[in-house]
Every structure is written in structure tokens, then in C-alpha cells.
Computed example of a mutant assay.
Amino acid sequence: MHSILISGAAQGIGAAVARLFCHQGYKVGIYDLNTTLAEQLAAKLGSHARAGYLDVTQYDSWQTALNEFEDWAGEINILVNNAGVLYSGNFEQIPIEAHHRTIDINIKGMMNGCHAAFSFLKRASFARVINLSSASAIYGQADLAVYSTSKFGVRGLTESLDIEWQKYGIRVMDVMPLFVHTAMVHDMQAESIKKMGVHLNAEDVALDILNLVQRKDHLLTPTHRPVGFRSQFLFQLSKISPQFINRLTNLWIARKF
């Protein structure tokens, strides 16, 4: 039985991933700062789920969580770097502390997870890393400047490690949803969410993660998986359009009329 450890798993996309994989027979690690919610979810899912504390910004917290989960599950097969935060609005009006927190959690937290988990994944019989990126990593988004920056960081590290770790049999991939019905998008101050709308739920993202993990032709599986039609369209458009077209498209998305 394969196992999966998910950061930020007490609610939202992380919780949807935990529920889906548990129902598919995986041993599931529900790790979060909010241990109360994590334990409540684990209790609902039953004996194949384990809850634990994880502060992704702290490397030693990752080490503790990984050791605990491996002792319980036997080995760690899948790591999902899901924990993240989002601040929206004009870049200069958001406190610099919020920008720093975005980088600390969304980039450094993921980097900590990949680095700390490497030795566990390397000795596992099957190993995958799935990082939560975003459609905002296709082109920098106005009113989401640092969040978008952080997701470009996720995209870059994912691409690099997917090549580096191929020799160990570890695939590193990401999912790139547009806006998802979670607490993260509540009261967002960005014109893009008004233009593009919210058409995905957490279960849509979880299903794409399951599909990535279970694909048999893993060597042919793309590193990036845009989630939903709108994200797929923007991702493909960015590949074939001149840069000025991409800029004009995103200028229209961001502009208030």
C-alpha cells in the first residue's frame, strides 16, 4: 500500500487530496499547523489516515513530520507540497511582512519539503513529488504580484528537480489551477478573479493529482499539469503567442473597465 504525505492538509485542496487518496486505499498523512482540524479529518477518514503538526517554514519540523510518518506508514511514496498563502491587492499597499510571509511559505516551505523528503523518497519503492503551482505562474499577475512570483518559484524548482531526480526514479511535477473554491480566494482584491471567475473546486485539483500519480506512462507525463479548461488554454496560449500578445492578454485580464 502506497503512502502520501500532504502539507497544509487540514482544509481546502489539501483536505480534498487526503480524502480522495484515502478512499483509493493509500495511507495518508494529514500535516498542518492546525492540528485540531487535521486530527478531526483523520478521525473521519479512519485507520489509513494519520494527522500531525507541520510548520513548512521550519526545516526541523519537516524532519520530525517525515520521520513520524515513515515510521507509521512504512515508507513515503508521495509528497504533496500544498501549503500556501495568498495576499491580493496593489503590491505597494500590501505590508512587506505579508510579501515575506508569502515567499517563506510558498517557496521556502516547498523547498524545505523537497530537500527534507529526498532521502525518504530515494529509498522508497515508488516516489513522486507533486507541488501546488498555479495558473499565475504562466504570466505574472497584477494584484497578485508576490503570490505569482512564488508560484514561478514553484514552477522553476519543479522543472529543475524533475530532471535532477530522474536518475533516482523520482518524478517531480506540479498542478496549475486557476481560481479554486477555497477560503484562499475569499475577498480577493484582484480584477482577474472577476474576469476569469471561479470554476474549479478542490476535488477537481485532487483528481488531477491522483491522475498524475497513477499514470503508467510516467516518463511521458508532462512536468506541468494545468487544471481546468481556462488554465489549459492560457498555458497553451503562452507557448505559441508572442510576448506582446501575452502581455496584452494579461493587461486585459487585470484592467478595470
Rank of each mutant, 00 (worst) to 15 (best):
A183M: 11
T102G: 05
G228R: 03
P222H: 05
G74A: 01
V205I: 08
Q63S: 11
L54M: 00
E97C: 09
I103Q: 05
M176C: 02
A16N: 02
I107R: 05
L121P: 11
W252R: 13
A43C: 02
A202G: 07
A124G: 11
W62I: 09
K122D: 07
H181L: 11
Y31I: 07
A124Q: 05
V85T: 15
K195V: 15
N106P: 01
I170P: 10
P226N: 01
F235W: 15
P242T: 11
E70R: 09
G74M: 11
K108A: 11
L161T: 04
G113C: 02
K216F: 05
Q236D: 07
I163R: 15
E39L: 06
S119C: 06
Q58V: 14
R128C: 13
I103C: 06
R225C: 13
E191N: 15
A142Y: 05
A202R: 08
I76G: 03
Q232F: 03
G169W: 00
W72I: 02
Q93K: 14
Y26R: 10
Y31N: 00
V227C: 06
L251D: 13
I193S: 00
D143R: 12
H115Y: 12
V205N: 00
V205F: 05
Y87N: 09
E68A: 09
N201Y: 03
F229Q: 10
I96F: 15
P222Q: 01
K194T: 12
Q236V: 12
S241F: 13
T249R: 13
A15V: 02
M188H: 05
Y59F: 15
K256L: 07
A190Q: 02
T182S: 00
D60Q: 15
S125I: 04
G14H: 04
P226H: 04
V198M: 07
I76Q: 00
L5K: 08
L220E: 14
H181Q: 15
G197A: 01
G113D: 03
S7E: 06
A98D: 15
P222E: 09
S238F: 09
A49G: 00
G169C: 02
N112E: 08
Q24P: 09
G89D: 01
G113H: 06
L234D: 12
H224D: 05
L234A: 15
M188F: 00
H115Q: 14
L20R: 14
K27P: 01
Y53T: 11
H115C: 11
W165I: 06
G46P: 01
D55M: 06
C114M: 14
T35W: 04
L207W: 04
H2K: 15
G74P: 11
R155I: 01
